[in-house]
Design a binder for these strands. Sequence first.
DNA 1: CAACCTAAACCGACCAGACGGTACAGTGTG
DNA 2: CACACTGTACCGTCTGGTCGGTTTAGGTTG
Lengths: 170, 170
Amino acid sequence: MRILEAARAIAAREGAGKITIDAVARESGLSKGGVLYNFPSKKALLSGLLNQMLTAHRELVETLPQDLPSRCLRGQLEAILKMREADVDLSMAILAAAASDPQLLDPLRAELSEQIEVILSETQDRATAMIVVLALQGLRFQDLLALPDGGPQVRKSVVERLRTMIDELE
Amino acid sequence: MRILEAARAIAAREGAGKITIDAVARESGLSKGGVLYNFPSKKALLSGLLNQMLTAHRELVETLPQDLPSRCLRGQLEAILKMREADVDLSMAILAAAASDPQLLDPLRAELSEQIEVILSETQDRATAMIVVLALQGLRFQDLLALPDGGPQVRKSVVERLRTMIDELE
DNA sequence: CAACCTAAACCGACCAGACGGTACAGTGTG
DNA sequence: CACACTGTACCGTCTGGTCGGTTTAGGTTG
């Protein structure tokens, strides 16, 4: 969808708070009316953004083979790594939503809640599993806010280590 | 400072994007003129918020004994835990700044960059150290956005585990 | 084939209110 | 007196949203 693409581009370039209907219209080449035809309100637009992110994430997870140990946790890792490769800043939706109306994050909360439940049930060592989840979240936000991360070689070893942590969860 | 307090209260209650000069004036009991007397622009206000957060963080770290191993990393952990206890949502400043103008995060980036450098230099096992840092960031954002975290007992065991991870870094 | 109709997709002018910021005369306090 | 405000009025711009109209694609009918 051209509209959501435009919204993400604005967020990436100027910050999540700069997503306005006018700006999205300009960026997408549509008129303001056209944008509001597709998303009848700004809330709808932002929740569309978030939804797109959740869907993309879900689809990525589903490409993984079915019977891996700690499958859900592995999915989280691969999804976040892939999002970083393709520099489609889908996570920008989180910031945009949080800034404009925290309630918009409810679907994300629900989905994440389920996933954490599954992840914790897949292992005996819940503390380690949760630490991996938190580290992945940290990774995502560090990317999102362009916070420093110790450089590429540290990042690479972090990813490797996270992978072995998951492998050793049994 | 009453003004920054008011700004944080608004952000916590209605979202970071709802911080406006009028709203802050109302919340703090000052007049709009009074707010703008203290912070000559909205950018100044937000960077004041961020600065308050960085200062509080720095002060917390300095209360730790000087000659601990991995002192800087420990400081990160204790600071983030203390912030959570006192439910002063200082980190709200990060969201507010990111939404309105990503450049405002530059001081945070600089400070974090230094700290990561120190943390990585304090240990041989840089991957683990960095994972702890990322997990702490994850923890902070999970609080900030009210994302689910597996419940109090998981959280408790996560904190314990993070502590032993630091202890074992040598 | 053309004339007609319909519905979806879109345009762009407009509106009311919010926003950041300015200006400035006054006020109480040390 | 200076300082730290208050209160109010104002300005230009931006914002979300409405609304009447236009374009386009695709039937249906004679």
